[in-house]
Nucleic acid binder design. Structure first.
Length: 1026
RNA sequence: GGGUGUAUAGCUCAGUUGGUUAGAGCGCCACGUUGACAUCGUGGAGGUCAGAGGUUCAAAUCCUCUUACACCCACCA
């Protein structure tokens, strides 16, 4: 006799049991007893290290653990591999938010310190999550745990990047990104929020058409009109060029026909602004148009905006409209237009779409040697059925997405993540000095090519320059070959300089020697046209470009000093800083009265890049500042965690994995990318099956979230009801791909079941003479009920196996639940109390039942299992097999149950006294059957069987029952109702069977079945009416 | 605009390839229960399977359309 508490207290067992499992080492497949050669692997979708476990995680853990435990029980070499994801953007922004509270930004800390901070946070978060995962009972092999930012995964990431780069599948290109001028950072699409805002919508006259826009300030360099090729209104102007009066005077505009133009919207004609709209950018690439930035990173207008350069967006908009209005080009202003404004999720600043350099994975280019693109490779494996999606309908979604897939932008302007393994030669730094003062300068005469020496003042200035430059070192010093430059260089830097003719001052031609004022007045006119018999500023720009080209080839990563003249310095402003000549004149250093600021210029040397695993040798290399998209590293998850690129045993044994179980919401983000990467890198699929679960919602069907306050905390639920109950509440009643509503009462319900299971076990274990494991040879079933229940056990073994093999977890749970509570507890145990002497069968069933339940309810099953004092743990016991039984006895017992139910039913309906035992007669062809089960019927039906009894007549399956109770008037009504129903049904059946096309077309077994149904109904009707 | 799903009892959901007089759990109602379990037992009521058409001998199930809701993608000059 055992002594067990009445109520199962999950809290007092779960942690201990988990520890026992962990200590056994059986979560690690290397320690499992060898039974099958077959392996079974699931890679845990790594939770983000941003914080806490939520119900979605809990559900995913429940499904995966169910599969894992089942496969361990059937003897597979089973691995469930845990890990976590660094979730770059999400994690970084959590830490940044914390910093913001202290009024700091990441830039205040610097890259290194900030990363330290993030890493600390991630480590803490990992610990929390790990514990939470364990609370769910997850049988994960912790010895193989990985983090997407681990050193070995980093090697995998870099190796793949290099492979793709070498295969020409990764390239650097321009793309319009979401830029927040306040945060000074790009935003991912999901970081952009939308607000509806009323803003004026303008219609302008633009040459032959009228265009609409909400953003006039971006329209400076629009030179292309797009209309729909089928638009009759514009048929005549397609392909033509027009001189259009526009913001800064006349420009030439070309008309192009493209179906992208929507005839319905506005006037059906539009101009395009390549640099500030994603769509326009693509159009620009299609038609090879110039991409000119109008707005800079600070949200101000660039030099391309001419006179409005430097203004911020809002002001510029007003001004542009003003100008156009003055020119009579405003057609209409719609002040009631609601604009869908995109803003930054952090600071709510309107987002500026800006072009910038990003890294891309080319999904359409053929992979060398395979003659197929990444896209094609990834589509094929699903098309062929090599990868199976559950539910199947996601195939469609997958193909649709794949077909429309564009190149994958993999670079992110954040710090936390895998740094892009690309190195550039350091940029060339130019510090520019103008030569010291000459006598000409003092007289304010234009010197030009006249080769004059420095004045006293000039010499002094140069010597002073030397002092201020004491600490600075330059690799190369280049000067103009005119004396005033070389002399300055000599004083300031010594003799080690190179001269270059291209650095000479502009040739003023006939204006040489004239007063500076006269020359100044001519300046703007000499941008494109030369001074009389002299040179144009464009020409200076040309020779300077030439020089810069040479420098950038020769002096990569060097620091260079240039000593030359005024016009050449302005040319550098134009070439390297993107100024217009006009701006360069306006911002002349002479106007500021500053002497020798030492202008700084940078020449980027992108063309020389190195891609590899480590920093290349040599001093001048610097690594790309950007990091990789999180999904780049997680797309390698199934194999990078198994040791790839090494050809490890693990990789051979456990890859491809069997199942990828995850939410349908990340089918694209993650699942699709894993397929792309695995088929490309390993030339094999990452997994055979994709099981997609739905989202967990609250009772009203709303998404659970902290802000709504409708979230259920899984830990709290485990604390209150136990992990097993929580698991069941998410397994039963959920189907793949469909959302699941969860609420506390539901979990409570399954807690009740767990307690029921506990009490079934308690009853069996405390009433049997000896608790032991029973071999099937020793079973000795005797009565009909014994055969029946063992047969039911056979069925449930079959069905559970089938259900789990086919991912029908809900079904498995439901059927087992029914077997346990109804068949076993409510019928068989009650019968066992009557018939007695069933120790062996009860113990046998209990043992098998625990194994069957174990995948879904690991804790309680293991706790009860301990009572058997078995040498081995339940987690590695053997999945049960069916028994061989005599079929004959089994079916007849159903009839006994029906008789009992009919009696119970009649008692309840007629409101008979439940305490009283009534007399009852039962007559059937097989009277022996009744005799054999007399006691069961009497006790469970609370009747006394006599040969002849008065009372009401009942009938089940040709068995006549007369029960000695008084008929209640309500039942008469029910009876009438039943008669009407039956008559109607009989009518339907008869018509069906008479119908010739039915007998012609329906399969014979169906016809037989229908005939049988009709017969039954007729018999029943007869009993009711007699 | 393109796509995908969902709609079945008061609630939450099952319902394989068409062959049901349409199921479960919870809730509700009635009756009961001093020993495995009140976290229990027995029984019951409750449904035009969203609507309309069609295919078929036969439709909750297949097709078309409509309605409502949810989600994904694209776009918003």
């Amino acid at each position: 006799m055992k002594d067990l508490p009445k109520i199962y207290n999950s809290k007092s067992f779960e942690d201990k049991i988990y520890l026992k499992w962990e200590e056994s080492g059986f979560f690690n497949p290397d320690n499992l007893p060898e039974r099958n050669k077959k392996s079974f692997t699931i890679s845990l979708p790594p939770p983000n290290v941003t914080g806490q476990l939520h119900l979605g995680h809990a559900a995913m853990l429940a499904y995966q653990d169910t599969m894992t435990r089942y496969h361990r029980l059937i003897g597979d070499k089973t691995l469930w591999l845990p890990g976590m994801d660094h979730a770059a953007i999400a994690t970084q922004s959590v830490v940044e938010k914390k910093l913001n509270k202290k009024k700091k930004t990441r830039h205040d800390l610097g890259r290194e310190k900030f990363l330290k901070e993030v890493n600390n946070f991630a480590e803490d978060s990992k610990k929390t999550i790990r514990n939470q995962i364990k609370k769910m009972g997850s049988s994960l092999d912790w010895s193989r745990e990985h983090f997407t930012l681990d050193e070995d995964l980093s090697i995998a990431v870099k190796t793949v990047f290099k492979k793709m780069y070498d295969d020409g599948l990764i390239y650097k290109g321009d793309r319009v990104v979401n830029w927040c001028p306040t945060c000074q950072s790009t935003l991912a699409d999901d970081e952009v929020e939308y607000v509806e805002k009323k803003a004026p919508f303008y219609y302008f006259k633009y040459g032959p058409v009228i265009i609409g826009t909400a953003r006039p300030e971006t329209k400076f360099s629009d030179k292309v009109i797009i209309v729909h090729p089928k638009d009759k209104r514009y048929k005549d102007i397609i392909g033509k060029e027009f001189n259009v009066e526009w913001i800064e005077g006349k420009i030439k505009a070309k008309v192009i026909a493209d179906i992208i133009a929507d005839m319905e919207i506005g006037t059906g004609a539009m101009t395009i602004t390549p640099a500030h709209s994603m769509v326009d950018f693509e159009l620009a690439q299609k038609y090879d148009l110039k991409v000119e930035k109008i707005i800079d990173k600070d949200g101000k207008l660039t030099s391309a905006a001419g006179s409005m350069a430097g203004l911020d967006v809002e002001k510029a908009r007003k001004k542009v409209v003003e100008i156009l209005d003055k020119k009579g080009l405003v057609h209409e202003i719609d002040n009631n237009y609601t604009h869908n404004l995109s803003i930054c999720y952090r600071c709510s600043t309107p987002i500026e779409p800006l072009p910038s350099k990003q890294w891309f994975v080319d999904v359409n280019k053929k992979v060398p040697g395979r003659n197929k693109s990444l896209k094609q490779l990834a589509s094929e494996v699903v098309e062929s059925g090599e990868i199976k999606m559950i539910p199947n309908r996601f195939n469609k979604t997958y193909f649709q997405w794949m077909d429309n897939l564009r190149d994958w932008c993999i670079s992110r302007q954040i710090w936390y993540g895998h740094r892009i393994p690309v190195w550039y030669k350091e940029p060339i730094e130019i510090t520019y000095f103008v030569h010291g003062t000459t006598p000409d300068n003092e007289k304010s005469i234009a010197t030009g090519l006249n080769d004059v020496s420095l004045s006293e003042l000039g010499i002094k200035q140069s010597k002073e320059l030397k002092k201020t430059l004491k600490d600075k070192k330059f690799d190369v010093i280049i000067t103009s070959d005119l004396k005033r430059a070389t002399e300055s260089a000599n004083y300031a830097f010594g003799k080690d300089y190179i001269t270059d003719k291209r650095l000479r001052e502009i040739n003023y031609g006939d204006m040489t020697g004239k007063s500076s004022k006269e020359v100044y007045d001519l300046k703007k006119e000499t941008i494109n046209e030369p001074y009389p018999n002299g040179e144009s500023h464009k020409n200076v720009e040309k020779r300077m470009r030439d020089l810069i080209d040479d420098i950038s080839k020769k002096y990569k990563g060097k620091k260079i000093a240039i000593i030359a003249h005024q016009a050449t310095q302005q040319a550098l402003d134009v070439i390297l800083k993107g100024k217009t000549w006009k701006q360069a004149f306006d911002e002349d250093w002479r106007n500021t009265k500053a002497w020798q600021p030492g202008w700084k210029y940078k020449i980027e040397t992108d063309d020389e890049t190195y891609v590899g695993l480590e920093t290349p040798k040599g001093k001048d290399w610097i690594q790309d500042e950007d990091t990789l998209d999180t999904w780049f590293s997680s797309s390698l998850w199934t194999f990078s965690t198994l040791g790839w690129p090494e050809k490890t045993n693990d990789l051979k044994t456990f890859h491809p994995t069997q199942v990828m179980e995850t939410g349908y919401d990340i089918l694209f983000f993650w699942v699709a990318r894993m397929i792309i990467m695995s088929t490309y890198v390993l030339e094999e699929i990452p997994f055979h099956n994709v099981y997609l679960h739905g989202l967990i919602r609250d009772k009203e069907g709303k998404k659970m979230s902290k802000s709504l306050g409708n979230g259920i905390d899984p830990l709290e639920m485990i604390d209150k009801y136990g992990a097993d109950a929580l698991r069941l509440s998410m397994i039963v009643g959920s189907t793949p791909g469909n959302d699941l509503r969860l609420y506390e009462e539901k979990i409570q319900g399954y807690r009740n079941f767990i307690n029921k299971l506990w009490n079934i076990s308690r009853y069996i274990l405390t009433t049997v003479k000896k608790v032991e494991q029973i071999k099937k040879e020793d079973l000795e079933p005797q009565t009909m009920a014994d055969y029946w229940i063992l047969n039911q056990l056979n069925n449930i073994i079959d069905n559970t196996t089938d259900n789990l093999e086919n991912f029908k977890f809900s079904q498995a749970g439901e059927e087992l639940y029914e077997f346990t509570w109804n068949k076993l507890a409510n019928w068989y145990i009650e019968i066992a109390k009557i018939e007695g002497n069933k120790d062996k069968i009860l113990l046998y069933i209990l043992e098998k039942l625990l194994i069957l339940w174990h995948p879904m309810c690991p804790f309680i099953s293991e706790v009860i299992w301990e009572q058997f004092n078995s040498k081995e743990l339940l987690i590695i016991s053997n999945w049960p097999n069916k028994l061989k039984l005599k079929e004959k006895e089994v079916k007849e017992f159903d009839l006994i149950q029906e008789i009992i139910s009919a009696i119970r039913n009649a008692r309840a309906e007629h409101k008979a006294n439940t305490k009283k035992t009534y007399s009852c007669s039962i007559s059937t062809k097989n009277q022996k059957l009744i005799e054999d089960n007399k006691e069961i019927i009497e006790k469970l039906g609370k009747v006394k069987i006599t040969p002849k009894s008065p009372g009401i007549k009942l009938n089940v399956n040709n068995v006549d029952i007369i029960l000695d109770i008084n008929e209640s008037p309500e039942v008469k009504k029910n009876k009438e109702k039943s008669i009407i129903n039956l008559e109607r049904y009989i009518g339907i059946q008869e018509n069906k069977l008479k119908n010739k096309s039915f007998s012609k077309n329906a399969p014979p077994d169906v016809i037989l079945k229908e005939e049988e149904k009709l017969k039954q109904a007729k018999v029943e009707l007869e009993k009711l009416t007699s």
